Computed example of a mutant assay.
Amino acid sequence: MFRWLITLLVVLVLALQYRLWFGEANLREVLALRQAISTQQQDNEKLLERNRQLEAEVQDLKKGLAALEERARSEMGMIREDETFIQLIEPRSGSAQ
């Protein structure tokens, strides 16, 4: 009788171990999901930071003209009516004069 009880307990432990290692939602799958969650959280943090920067830029553009003027100058090469545009061209190195 005692031997049957031990055999039954060993079989139950082996069945539980099988489910732990190879069954549905096993340890490998759980570890892979944890890694995927960690990666997604890092991506989310990067996107949140980018969104904060964009929101700050939008607010700056809504409030004043300084940011709008800076953007027009740097990205579009625009100048004001009362300004003079001067472009300096450096000579090519190695060319004969």
Rank of each mutant, 00 (worst) to 15 (best):
A72D: 00
L68V: 13
V13W: 04
W4S: 15
V10I: 13
R50M: 12
A32D: 08
R71C: 00
E69F: 00
I37F: 06
F22H: 07
F22K: 03
V11Y: 03
N44T: 11
R28V: 14
L5D: 05
L20V: 07
S95I: 10
Q42F: 04
R50V: 06
D43N: 13
Q40V: 03
S95M: 07
E55V: 14
V10Q: 08
A96V: 13
R28Q: 15
S93G: 10
E29L: 09
Q35I: 02
F2Y: 11
P91R: 02
L12A: 10
V30C: 05
A25H: 07
Q42D: 12
L12C: 04
I89G: 02
Q53Y: 02
I79R: 09
E24D: 14
A72V: 04
A72S: 03
Q53T: 09
R52H: 07
D82K: 09
L88V: 11
R34K: 13
Q41K: 06
V11R: 05
G23T: 01
A56H: 08
I6R: 14
G23N: 01
K63I: 07
R92W: 10
R3M: 13
R80W: 03
F85Y: 14
S38A: 12
L48I: 05
L61Y: 04
S95C: 04
I79H: 07
L27Y: 03
L61H: 04
Q59R: 13
G77Y: 01
Q42E: 12
T39W: 05
E24I: 15
R92S: 12
E75T: 03
I86R: 08
A96W: 15
P91H: 01
Q87N: 11
R34D: 09
Q41L: 07
E29M: 10
Q59M: 10
N44W: 05
Q59V: 12
Q17G: 10
A96K: 13
V10A: 12
F85A: 08
L5V: 14
L20W: 06
L12S: 06
L31I: 11
F85D: 06
S93D: 11
R80C: 02
Q41H: 02
Y18K: 05
